[in-house]
Write a protein that binds this DNA or RNA. Structure first.
Length: 436
RNA sequence: GCCAGGGUGGUGUAGCCUGGUCAGCACAGGGGACUGUGGAUCCCCUAGCCCGGGUUCAAAUCCCGGCCCUGGCCCCA
């Protein structure tokens, strides 16, 4: 038996867990819909080339890539943004703008599993294509906040950074390996101050440069407190314009009523593949070793890279496997009810009795009651035992004697009280008892 | 890709250091005592040493490799 093992980094989701996931998905989906985003689903796999085009050849290392029987080199999607951008370029370039799409789907990355990281995982995300205005950034970030709120989570922050400012910053410092520097900055919270400074000097920074980096990563906190500091640090026109954009953004987010969850953190880089301006990520304090629970940003070049007419876009993705453990840890997901409300037990092996049981359970089901019928032929004692253990509130017992008089027995499992009910009236009776 | 610690019936575990007397326990599942009345009790049954190789008279136990799990690194689109 042990030869049939689960593939590394994948999971089986059992009924209870599925019920909880579905609850989370539904909360999030509802908000997405209210913001008038529409659901799309693209194929699970694409040509590997698509992902290489976006992120370069190295990503193949992190892809679930394979050749199919027709010799195509394919990869399971590592996220949805590439596929959605391809879909847009293929067929929606002339659609009215903005295009507002959302998805809830599984993604695949060939990485070593660890806390909150699997090889197959789910994301719920949106893409807003066709507006380069800060209003679009605000709309998406407000929805990002509202999505978490919809799941009951309140203790989290959305930290906003900016790639233009980071790039500008690397230029100011004259660092060759700007990507390496950003990676280091992204990791700032994991290192001690001494190690961090030592690593900075490894990039050839002098004391002045180190000071500047420390000043940058110190730009972290409430927008009204830290944005003025950013204005002092940056001098170029481009950077000034971007800071103005951030001011407008936080102003709009205030109008959306979500500023309570908004922080500025100019040290955020969020990967390096395609973000071009505002980037953001959500963090919820927890003891589970889980960091970011989702993130996104503006990517104005990707559609052009895919051969489309240059089109600005912005979006985010929520990591379901990171969000759910935190919600569970906080007790925010309601316990799913997996038991039926009524359990119908035929007594004996008589065919008429079995048919009557099926008739009763069918009638209940048609009336909208979650009902089950004994299917294993257990004797009445074991069947009641089973129903009791499941916590079923009402059982209908159907035996030959009652049936001869056109009646069945309804048993309240909590009190043990029983009463004979006309078979034709049993649905009505139970609806009444259940308060339906 | 790298590192650390793990893997014993469906689940949780004892045993491993110190090889044999070892495959035990609890829960769960099925049946019966009880052929029309539950969660109790008693009895019975099902079911396991992750896979492969090595050492040895003898391996769950020691060694090697693989797979998987948990976590860390890299990376995190």
């Amino acid at each position: 038996m042990k030869r049939l093992e689960k593939v590394k980094g994948t999971r089986d989701l059992l009924p209870e867990e599925m019920a909880k996931r579905r609850w989370v998905f539904e909360r999030i989906r509802e908000v997405f819909e209210r913001y008038n985003f529409h659901e799309v689903l693209t194929p699970t796999f694409e040509y590997t080339e698509l992902f290489k085009l976006r992120s370069g050849d190295e990503v193949v290392e992190q892809l679930y890539a394979f050749d199919d029987k027709g010799g195509r080199n394919l990869s399971l999607r590592p996220d949805m943004t590439s596929s959605v951008a391809r879909l847009y370029v293929n067929s929606f370039q002339n659609a009215p703008k903005p295009v507002k799409w959302y998805y809830i789907a599984n993604m695949f990355r060939y990485e070593e599993p660890q806390s909150g990281r699997f090889r197959e995982f789910w994301q719920a995300g949106v893409e807003l294509i066709g507006s380069d205005k800060v209003e679009a950034d605000a709309e998406v970030i407000a929805l990002f906040v509202e999505s978490y709120l919809a799941t009951g989570l309140e203790d989290f922050t959305v930290n906003i950074g900016d790639r233009i400012l980071l790039d500008e910053f690397a230029r100011m410092l004259g660092v060759e390996d700007d990507i390496g520097l950003m990676r280091l900055i992204d990791k700032k919270d994991k290192l001690s101050k001494e190690d961090f400074i030592g690593a900075l000097k490894g990039f050839g920074l002098n004391d002045d440069g180190v000071e500047k980096v420390l000043a940058l990563i110190g730009i972290k906190g409430r927008p009204d407190e830290v944005l003025p500091r950013a204005e002092e640090l940056f001098t170029s026109d481009e950077a000034k314009a971007e800071i103005k954009r951030l001011y407008e953004l936080v102003d709009l987010l205030d109008a959306y009523g979500v500023s309570r969850w908004i922080r500025i953190d100019l040290g955020i880089a969020r990967g390096f593949d395609y973000y071009t301006s505002i980037v953001f990520e959500a963090i919820a304090p927890n003891d589970l070793g889980i960091g970011s629970i989702g993130g996104g940003g503006r990517y104005d070049n990707l559609i052009g890279v895919f051969g489309g007419k240059p089109t600005p876009a912005t979006g985010f993705a929520i990591g379901i496997e990171r969000l759910i453990p935190i919600l569970e840890w906080k007790g925010l997901i309601p316990e799913p009810k997996l038991r039926p409300d009524v359990y119908v037990i035929p007594i004996g092996k008589d065919t008429e009795v079995k048919k009557a049981a099926v008739e009763v359970v069918s009638a209940l089901r048609r009336a909208g009651v979650k009902a089950d019928v004994e299917l294993t032929g257990r004797k009445i004692g074991k069947a009641l035992d089973y129903a009791g253990r499941l916590g079923v509130p009402y059982v209908v017992l159907i035996g030959k004697r009652d049936l001869a008089e056109g009646r069945v027995t309804v048993r309240d499992m909590e009190t043990g009280e029983q009463k004979a009910v006309e078979k034709e009236r049993v649905v009505e009776e139970l609806l009444d008892l259940l308060g339906l």
